Simulated assay, not measured.
Amino acid sequence: MSENSEALDEFRVLLGEDDLSCTVSDALGRGGALDAGFRPVWPGARLLGPAVTVRTFGTDLSAVFDGIAAAPAGSVLVIDSHGVVNSAFWGERTTRAALGRRLAGAVIGGACRDVVALKRLKFPVFSTGVTPNAGLPGGRGEVNVPVALGGQPVSPGDLLVADENGVVVVPMSQIRDTLTKVRALLQAERELLARTTDPALLQPEGVS
């Protein structure tokens, strides 16, 4: 097992921590988050896993299905739709295909649909919009190429961590180091909150 595989397994244990995305962002120097437009499609959704990236072509869904077929179990499909929000790049059919591949979730720089089905199936999806319009076939697109969405570059293998606060990207080369920092921050936070409510002591470091 590679060092990153071990780190990913250890990171997954932390997914039950409340507001984990906030701690991961703190560990990255208070950065790494996609912009505030990325929201969970259903309340309580959480995901954590390495990225399999998709760059769509127009409103074509073909590359999304290609990405699902190529994605290992535990992966997060990251879809760069070039800002298209009037056509959905995810819905019940893609969700059922992803569940069949045991994927961890999807992050879409664009829209999805079938939100009632997604909530019922408990598949975590984070997107920048919702629309009834389905994407149409017509040009395929690309899989496992560098993409950019929400103000952040995402490469295949980068770690995605998402909850109701938003989505954070951990570069693949920083996964182990970030895990170590996250553990230390979680422990320090528990200890601090258990011993004080003093506003002076609860300020983040660097605030005066």
Rank of each mutant, 00 (worst) to 15 (best):
G135K: 09
T23V: 10
S5Y: 13
R120F: 00
P132M: 09
A70W: 03
A117L: 03
V54N: 09
V41I: 03
H82I: 00
G157W: 07
F89N: 10
V168N: 12
G138P: 10
K122L: 06
Q203R: 15
K122T: 08
R55P: 03
T178M: 10
A36E: 15
R39T: 07
S87V: 08
D177F: 05
G150D: 10
G109W: 00
T53R: 11
V147C: 07
V143N: 14
P146D: 11
A70K: 05
P132Y: 04
G138N: 14
V116M: 00
R176V: 09
F11T: 00
M172E: 15
D80I: 06
P199N: 13
D26W: 11
K122F: 03
L185I: 13
F65Q: 05
V64H: 05
S5P: 03
A73V: 01
E3P: 02
V64Y: 02
V182I: 10
A106W: 03
V143P: 14
P43S: 15
Q187G: 03
L201S: 15
L149W: 04
R12K: 11
R39C: 02
G166C: 12
S81N: 10
L47H: 09
S155I: 03
A200T: 01
G139E: 02
A184S: 12
D80F: 00
A36R: 15
V13M: 07
A70V: 04
P204A: 14
P171Y: 07
S2T: 12
A104Q: 04
T128W: 06
E6W: 11
R93T: 13
T95H: 04
I68T: 06
R102Q: 14
V207N: 01
V161T: 08
E6Y: 09
D9W: 08
F126W: 05
R176C: 04
V182N: 05
R96H: 00
T23A: 15
K181C: 06
A7H: 08
G151C: 05
N165R: 09
A148F: 05
G151H: 05
V182D: 06
R96E: 01
A104W: 02
R101A: 12
E191A: 14
G37A: 06
A88F: 12
L160I: 15
R140Y: 07
G129D: 13
R39D: 05
S2W: 10
L121N: 01
R46M: 02
G139I: 10
L193R: 13
R101I: 06
V24D: 00
P171M: 09
L8H: 14
G105T: 00
A111Q: 09
E17Q: 15
R120S: 00
T95V: 11
L8W: 14
N144G: 04
W42C: 00
G29Q: 08
T128F: 04
L48W: 07
L201C: 13
E164K: 09
T131H: 14
E92I: 01
E3I: 10
V167Q: 11
G141D: 04
A33I: 02
D163T: 14
A63L: 07
L77E: 05
R183F: 01
L15E: 03
G31L: 12
G100T: 03
L20E: 04
A97P: 11
V76H: 11
L201Q: 15
L202V: 05
V207F: 13
A7Q: 09
V170L: 11
